[in-house]
Amino acid sequence: MLRIRNLESGYGRLKVLRKLSLHVKQGEVVTIIGANGAGKTTLLNTLAGLLRIWSGEVLFDGKDLMGIPSEKRVFMGAVLVPEGRQVFRTMSVEENLILGGVPLQKKEGRNALMEELEHVYSLFPILRERKDQFAGTLSGGEQQMLAIGRALMSRPSLIMMDEPSMGLAPLIVKDIFSIIEKLRDEGKTVLLVEQNARAALGIADRGYVLETGRIILQGDAEDLLANRDVQRAYLGKDLDVEV
């Protein structure tokens, strides 16, 4: 579904991603974990087209994404739930969702849009209750749900999420992760970026560890959870004490 080879990108003259390669197969949940500043957001923004691909190759459904503008990538089925939620604060919850469905409406018509709206409301009943409220007045957790719901409105084949648990209370984080599990069970393909490595590896099929713009480790989620380096660096286990 998604295959990245030797991708490089960054800001201005600052190169952040260095020869990065990874792949995501249909129906998989793949997580990328890494410390602050490792380049996780840079990677997802490059995949979404907000940043330019400097070199390397990004194939989505076999098509090269080089030079394709971000709004076209949404139509192709790759959608990003951006870091920090980025809902349309001055617009109502329902308007946010409808805007997320712009590609779906263009492709399949208004009925499909209304169906998908129902589907998103059934995933997030709280959004239905708040549908006429300005998105800017929602709580952080509700805004995150809205951001995910808005992305789902285009019926994407690949959904990329950038730290959906950021800044949320543990209880809400649990809700968000159970939503991601639900998406997995519906057969959606998910590329999940997280600092909350334990929770992310807990629901993922596979994982990659990103450090200063390079993949330094990859494998099945369980193997990574059991890996001593990962445990020490990202799961907060003090191995010296354990031993």
Binding site: E71, V87, A151
Partner: peptide
């Protein structure tokens, strides 16, 4: 719909791009 897309663009340009606008 076009009016909404314009408002979305003014509210948050990157987010609008990510909605395919």
């Amino acid at each position: 719909m076009v009016g909404r897309k314009m408002r979305a663009t003014s509210d948050n340009r990157n987010a609008a791009l990510l909605c395919g606008i």
